[in-house]
């Protein structure tokens, strides 16, 4: 009975408010249009077209024939797919923790009152503004086994010749070093912003209570950074999964296929082997996997917030 009444009352209230709500909704849509149109034209439409392509044999000359889900069948029956998918995830495991740890350490250092703060901050941020091809070519030369500065430096320390880009054991580390160097500036800047939002009086109070540096970091800094941290992890996981340029330029997926990632696999299938239908299907599968990961991450971080 009670629920019925409240239900009816709510319905009445809703009806009364309807014209107003419709107007606000319309207004919202109107404001969104400038975003929605380019989004639909440049993003949604290509995605839909990709789905359509993925159901066909599609060569350089365009559509050849409709094959239904045969392309998807082919993907899941090819052991290469799982290998390259693992490579993409392996890179996430290598790169995300290292770049976040480094970024945090740099941010903490720069947040202190040290000399040449701005200069140091700019120096670390500088690589981030370069394009992936530039940084890849720089490190391609730095890592050169015979004439590269990295090996020359290590040689002074007594190390032998290291084949950074053609040794299975080293190549992932080489790619990780490059990517960390490239993106750590951005991670650092976000953490710096986070650090500056933590009120200094918290630290003062903790100091008065006799908390040590580690305790202050553990109980004030870390919780204060948690929201920034979540965003960082999210960005880095997605960014690492999209690894392409560095391996394409520096290793060509090699030695063998040991640094071939999902994105490079899709690129080779489409643009090198002219199998655009199969490549579209691969992109769709990978896109779904990435969306699932994003959804899981959102879920996890949401729960912590609540």
């Amino acid at each position: 009975m009670e629920t019925q009444i409240t239900g009816r009352r709510a319905a009445a209230a809703l009806r009364r408010r309807e014209p107003l709500r419709l107007r606000t909704e319309l207004k919202a849509v109107l404001y969104l249009v400038p975003f929605l149109i380019p989004f639909a034209v440049f993003y949604l439409w290509p995605v839909c077209r990709g789905i359509w392509m993925s159901l066909h044999v599609w060569g350089i000359r365009g559509m050849e024939k409709y094959v239904g889900i045969a392309n998807y069948d082919k993907i899941f029956n090819n052991p290469d797919f799982y290998v390259y998918l693992w490579h993409s995830f392996y890179f996430v495991l290598l790169c995300t923790p290292t770049v976040i740890a480094l970024g945090l350490i740099l941010a903490l250092l720069i947040n202190e009152r040290i000399w040449f703060r701005t200069a140091i901050r700019s120096a670390f941020f500088l690589p981030y503004v370069l394009s992936v091809s530039v940084i890849s070519f720089i490190w391609l030369h730095l890592f050169d086994a015979k004439n590269g500065p990295v090996n020359a430096l290590l040689g002074l320390l007594g190390a032998g010749e290291l084949n950074w880009l053609t040794d299975r054991g080293l190549v992932w580390w080489a790619i990780t070093i490059v990517t960390d160097w490239w993106t750590v500036g951005f991670v650092m800047v976000l953490f710096l912003a986070g650090l500056q939002e933590i009120p200094p009086d918290h630290y003062e109070a903790a100091k008065i209570d006799g908390a040590g540096a580690w305790q202050r970091f553990r109980h004030i800094t870390m919780p204060g950074l948690s929201s920034v941290m979540k965003i960082q992890i999210f960005y880095q996981v997605i960014g690492s999964l999209k690894l392409f340029g560095q391996v394409q330029i520096m290793t060509g997926g090699g030695p063998g296929d040991s640094t071939n990632t999902m994105i490079r696999y899709i690129y080779v299938t489409g643009f090198k082997k002219d199998m655009f239908g199969l490549a579209s299907a691969q992109s769709i599968v990978f896109c779904v996997i990435m969306l699932m990961i994003a959804a899981i991450q959102f879920k996890l971080t949401d729960r912590k917030d609540g």
Partner: peptide, 20 residues
């Protein structure tokens, strides 16, 4: 031919670098 020669190139890399 393009598809075939790319396939060959990839497999050869796997062979000379000892994956296969």
């Amino acid at each position: 031919y393009t598809t075939i020669v790319t396939t060959i190139a990839e497999s050869l890399q796997n062979i000379i670098f000892g994956s296969e």
